[in-house]
Structure formats: structure tokens, C-alpha cells
């Protein structure tokens, strides 16, 4: 935990990953190639982080010389990793943006099944928030607009049908819109 001053740089995020409640990787991106260059090291790190964090929802931890902010939702765990000297609030901004954006595109069903059904959208959201370690966008509203992704879920289809029956034309319009 030394205090070597941080070189001013836009490269804020070292890694971001989403794990399920068994600690399995669903999505992960490592932006600093020097940090855990091999897949084995990455998975070890994720395992270590998961073991230390999944019991208590503490928001922030310091492991293997890295600051890690995290958040859980039902059966999912979201992690954003930065260097020891990084501004913790910047990492929090990234984490919050990631979570809020997913919350919106998944229509508040932030859980594993729904996330995997819409994995393409999740990839796009992460891509819009961080580019090569640089924070590209931190406003979830902007992210959702840019990704412009429509969620598929059984519930949503149920709603479409329901709305169709009750004469809500918006659902119909959505369905007939060409992809």
C-alpha cells in the first residue's frame, strides 16, 4: 500500500468482470495486459476476489495490491478493478454506470438467466462504458441510448402479448419494426 503518486492518465480501469454466484466468469475484460497476462492467473485472481467478497456486500476491497469495487444483485457479482492509488470514487462511478445501464436494458431483471439471454447487449454496454481501460461514458442514460438494445426475455414477450390483447399499439409497433 505504498503511495507512489499516480501518473496522470486516462487509463483508470484495470479490469472489469461479472461472476455468477458460484464464482464462475460470465464476462471479463482485462485492460492492463501486464496485470495477469494468462487466463490461468486471471481466473485465479477472480476466484480469490470472489472468495473474499461474496459473503458480505461491502462495496470495496483491497486485494493483491488492487482496489476493487463491487456490487451484487440476486445471483450476479459485478467487479471493477483499479490500481491501489486510483481514486476509489472514479471506480465507483464506473461500477454504478455499469449496473444502472444493465438494470435498464434488462428491465430491472438483473439476474443471471436474464443477463445470459441478453449477453450481446451486456457486451455492448461494457464496450460503451470502458474502451481499453479509459472511461468512455459514465452516464447510464447515455449508455443505454447509444447501445439502443431491446431486451429479450420471456416476461417481455408476455408483456407484448398482454399489451397486444389490451390494445396497446406500442407493443405491436415494436414487434413489426424491421430489425
Amino acid at each position: 500500500m505504498d503511495s507512489v503518486a499516480l501518473e496522470p492518465s486516462l487509463y483508470t480501469v484495470k479490469a472489469v468482470f461479472i461472476l455468477d454466484n458460484d464464482g464462475n466468469r460470465l464476462l471479463s475484460k482485462y485492460y492492463d495486459t501486464e496485470l495477469y497476462p494468462s487466463m490461468k492467473e486471471q481466473k485465479n485472481f477472480e476466484k480469490n476476489v470472489f472468495n473474499k467478497t461474496h459473503k458480505a456486500d461491502n462495496e470495496i476491497a483491497f486485494l493483491e495490491g488492487m482496489t476493487i469495487v463491487y456490487k451484487s444483485s440476486i445471483d450476479l457479482f459485478f467487479y471493477v478493478v483499479g490500481s491501489a492509488q486510483e481514486n476509489e470514487l472514479m471506480l465507483m462511478a464506473v461500477l454504478n454506470c455499469l449496473f444502472e445501464s444493465l438494470n435498464q436494458i434488462l428491465r430491472k431483471n438483473v439476474e443471471k438467466r436474464c443477463l445470459l439471454d441478453n449477453l450481446d447487449g451486456v457486451f455492448l454496454v461494457v464496450d460503451e462504458i470502458i474502451d481499453g481501460g479509459v472511461i468512455l461514458e459514465s452516464d447510464p442514460q447515455q449508455v443505454v441510448e447509444k447501445v439502443n438494445y431491446r431486451c429479450v426475455s420471456e416476461q417481455a414477450f408476455g408483456f407484448v402479448l398482454f399489451e397486444y390483447i389490451t390494445g396497446n399499439t406500442e407493443g405491436q409497433a415494436q414487434k413489426s419494426q424491421p430489425f
Binding site: M1, S3, N58, E59, I60, V69, N87, E88, L89, L91, M92
Partner: peptide, 15 residues
């Protein structure tokens, strides 16, 4: 109320 902020603050105070 934010844990990350409390953490950041106390870590810096520790320094």
C-alpha cells in the same frame, strides 16, 4: 453512507 467514500477517506487519513 457510501462505503467506498468512507474507505477512501480513512485510507488517506491513515496515510
Amino acid at each position: 453512507p457510501k462505503a467506498a467514500l468512507r474507505y477512501a477517506a480513512v485510507r488517506t487519513l491513515n496515510k
